[in-house]
């Protein structure tokens, strides 16, 4: 476990990258505009790529450079490009009928992060300084889950829901770079490609939704109940 030998400089680099990505999740939470979500997601992916590279450099895992490269290309460029194409096709620029206003969802998001911290704190038994990084990584993993689910439940537009799903995945990916950098590379690469397929499938489905259901807002998808 390489975190056991982490020094304070490395700990602060990892922490600040992780915290910046969490902040970007809040940017997504606090905006109405679909394009902003995509930009924030792209920036978050780039931060994760930097983090992978940093962990690879300090922890002595050269294969993480490859992961960092793939993350930057796929999550940082290809996925945002695909999402932008979906947005262009839909002619929807912003969330109109979000259930929670951005300001209130920021407050709820903050509360969820605190809750995530409490859970993370219970799951760790390592001493500082490694313990700090571990708790932070766990907090961010769990709180990105909460934020993703929050976005799923208060946003209606199809694109917002895809992005919320990607936030769910980003949290896991980010945390796993810090906690388990030695995870077999095969799995990480397959998960990256899997994500690409997921977004492609979503793109096709969005088109079906538009043609056959006549809407891309989950508010209006209410034929099936009970």
């Amino acid at each position: 476990m390489f975190l056991a030998h982490v020094n304070s400089l490395q700990a602060s680099i990892f922490s600040s990258l992780a915290i910046l990505s969490l902040l970007l999740a809040f940017v997504m939470l606090g905006s109405h505009w679909l394009r902003n979500y995509v930009y924030a997601f792209a920036a978050e992916s780039w931060l994760i790529a930097v983090l992978s590279a940093a962990v690879g450099y300090f922890g002595g895992y050269p294969e993480l450079y490859a992961i960092a490269f793939l993350t930057a290309i796929f999550r940082g460029l290809v996925l945002p490009y695909l999402l932008m194409r979906i947005i262009d096709r839909l002619h929807v620029k912003r969330e109109v009928h979000a259930i929670l206003q951005p300001s209130s969802s920021l407050v709820v998001g903050a509360l969820l992060v605190m809750f995530a911290f409490v859970i993370a704190n219970h799951m760790n038994r390592q001493a500082p300084p490694a313990g700090y990084v571990v708790v932070l990584a766990l907090t961010i993993m769990i709180s990105m889950k909460f934020l993703g689910f929050l976005m799923l439940s208060v946003r209606n537009e199809a694109v917002s829901q895809i992005l919320a799903l990607l936030v769910l995945e980003n949290g896991i990916f980010l945390g796993s770079q810090i906690l388990v950098p030695g995870m077999p590379m095969l799995i990480e690469i397959v998960i990256l490609f899997d994500l690409l397929i997921v977004v492609a499938c979503f793109g096709m489905l969005v088109r079906f939704l538009l043609v056959h259901a006549g809407t891309t807002s989950s508010r209006e998808l209410k034929r099936l109940v009970g």
């Binding site: 993993m141 769990i142 889950k145 993703g148 689910f149 799923l152 199809a158 829901q161 919320a164 799903l165 769910l168 995945e169 949290g171 896991i172 945390g175 998960i191 997921v198 499938c201 979503f202 489905l205 079906f208 939704l209 056959h212 259901a213 006549g214 989950s218 998808l221 034929r223 099936l224």
Partner: peptide, 24 residues
């Protein structure tokens, strides 16, 4: 049809988000 597309959308959103918990 409208119903089956709606069902497919709900299916993929609910299941993908749920299964991401399993990944975590």
């Amino acid at each position: 049809e409208a119903e089956s597309t709606e069902a497919a959308w709900k299916y993929i959103v609910v299941v993908s988000s749920g299964i991401s918990l399993a990944l975590l």
